[in-house]
Design a protein around this nucleic acid. Structure first.
Length: 311
RNA sequence: CGCGGGAUAGAGCAGUCAGGCAGCUCGCCAGGCCCAUAACCUGGAGGUCGGGGGUUCAAAUCCCCCUCCCGCAA
């Protein structure tokens, strides 16, 4: 059995953790995950998804260092690390210091949610949909000192469905990664697989997303905006301001609209709420969520908020 | 005690400030009209106004307490 340490935090990592745990070839010696964090309106201290899953799987050795250079943690990992064959990192959320890379016998491995070197960075899933890519996938790579630049063990492709949201693709890639991770890692550790260096000249990059990135910019075309709504659902979500109130856009459809309206102007077309974009395009608001309200169809939104019609 | 919005018919909302017949746009049911309808016309059913207490001749509306939902922020 290969001895592993698993580093992960969010839901994306859970299927991978589960797959390794349930595979007979590996032993999970411990978990490193982020500290419990205050979450939601009442700032309830909430454990990360990986911690919850680890407990379910009966893994008791769980480390949650706030900083990786913390004395106690460093001592712990330097003690256990060299006895491990490998570490596996899946959406852990912290950059590993170089001294950690040398600890396990055969290195540290990562599941990344894109076909590297395309979409290096922290939001590859949203980036792929936003860019209109028709294919994406997961990459199993060996971590080196540079972010997402390590040699590739395996890439598993999948088509992006035409209406697929970021959340849906996230879940599919999490599972896809989990199905290929155990045998890929085992093959490498068995010395049956030679990693390939990435072609850095083909690299593209994505940045970390915040809620502010979800503000719809009506100077773009409706097609771009519709892709953004799709890519950013449910995180970080997309929104705009209508009649001085914030309106989340959950689902939207782009269409051609020849009348000249200033970008950002709300109007009603075929009984549905729309907003003018640029280049003769407009976005139909299929499903929205006004602040303080639950999500509702565009139809329902119009029925109540008829001030939309004034514009 | 982080800031804020909300709960009224099956859905989305107005009415609350300033107490006085429970409303609007839809949906639903029945009928009519039409070559036709997600159109139009007529009629109808459907409400403990989130819950509890208080003030009042009278409370969706004013006062106190509680529950639940949501936006922001972190």
């Amino acid at each position: 059995m290969y001895k592993l340490l698993f580093l992960g935090t969010s839901a994306f990592a859970v299927p991978s953790l589960r797959a390794l745990k349930e595979d007979g070839r590996f032993e999970i010696a411990g978990i490193i995950t982020q500290p419990d964090k205050p979450v939601g309106r009442h700032a309830t201290l909430t454990p990360p998804a990986v911690k919850v899953a680890a407990k379910e799987l009966g893994i008791s050795e769980i480390q949650q260092p706030a900083k990786l250079k913390e004395e106690d943690f460093k001592k712990w990992v330097e003690d256990i690390g060299p006895s491990c064959d490998a570490f596996v990192v899946v959406s852990y959320g912290k950059i590993l210091p170089s001294w950690m890379l040398e600890l396990p016998k055969h290195g540290i491995f990562n599941v990344h949610g894109s076909l590297l070197p395309r979409w290096r960075g922290p939001s590859p899933i949203q980036a792929a949909i936003l860019a209109g890519d028709d294919r994406t996938g997961v990459t199993i790579m060996k971590i080196n000192e540079k972010m997402d630049e390590g040699p590739i063990l395996l890439e598993e492709q999948t088509a992006i469905h035409p209406d697929e949201t970021g959340g849906e693709l996230h879940d599919r890639l999490a599972n896809l990664g989990a199905t290929v991770l155990p045998h890929t890692l085992a093959a490498y550790l068995d010395e049956k697989l030679e990693p390939k260096e990435q072609n850095g000249s083909k690299a593209t990059y994505c940045k970390i997303l915040t809620r502010n990135d979800g503000r719809l910019d009506w100077a773009k075309t409706a097609d771009e905006l519709a892709r953004m709504v799709r890519a950013y659902h449910p995180w970080p979500g997309t929104w705009t301001i209508v009649n001085e109130t914030r309106l989340k856009v959950v689902k939207a459809r782009a269409f051609q609209y020849e009348k000249l309206l200033k970008p950002g102007t709300p109007f009603v077309h075929d009984g549905l709420p729309c907003i003018a974009a640029t280049s003769g395009t407009a976005l139909e608001l299929v499903e929205v969520q006004p602040e303080g309200k639950k999500a509702m169809s565009g139809n329902e939104f119009l029925r109540g908020m008829r001030s939309f019609l004034r514009n």
